[in-house]
Amino acid sequence: MAKRVREKRTTHQGQGAAGTAPKDDGVPSRPQCIPCMDGKKCSVWMFLPLVLTLFTSAGLWIVYFIAVEDNKIIPLNVADSKSGPLKPPYISIAGDVPPASCVFSQVMNMAAFLALVIAVLRFIQLKPKVLNPWLNVSGLVALCLASFGMTLLGNFQLTNDEEIHNVGTSLTFGFGTLACWIQSALTLKINLKNEGRKAGIPRVVLSAAITLCVVLYFILMAQRFHMHAARIQWGMVMCFLCYFGSFAVEFRHYRFEIICSEYQENFLSFSESLSEASEYQTDQV
Rank of each mutant, 00 (worst) to 15 (best):
E7D: 07
K8W: 03
H12K: 10
G14K: 07
I34L: 01
G39R: 07
L54G: 14
G59V: 06
L60E: 09
V63D: 01
A67K: 01
D80K: 11
G84F: 09
I91Y: 02
A94E: 09
A94K: 09
A100Y: 05
S101D: 09
F104G: 01
S105E: 12
Q106T: 09
L116C: 14
V120Q: 07
Q125I: 11
W134I: 15
N136Q: 13
V137P: 01
V137Q: 13
C144Y: 05
L158R: 14
D161E: 13
E162P: 14
H165Y: 15
V167C: 13
T169A: 13
F173N: 07
F175I: 04
L178V: 10
L178P: 06
L186E: 07
L192R: 00
L192P: 00
L192M: 03
A199C: 12
I201R: 13
I201S: 06
S207Y: 04
A209E: 02
F218R: 03
R224T: 12
F225P: 00
H226Y: 11
F247W: 13
H253V: 03
R255C: 02
F256T: 05
I259Q: 13
E262A: 08
Y263E: 04
S269K: 04
S273N: 14
S273I: 06
Y280V: 02
Q284R: 14
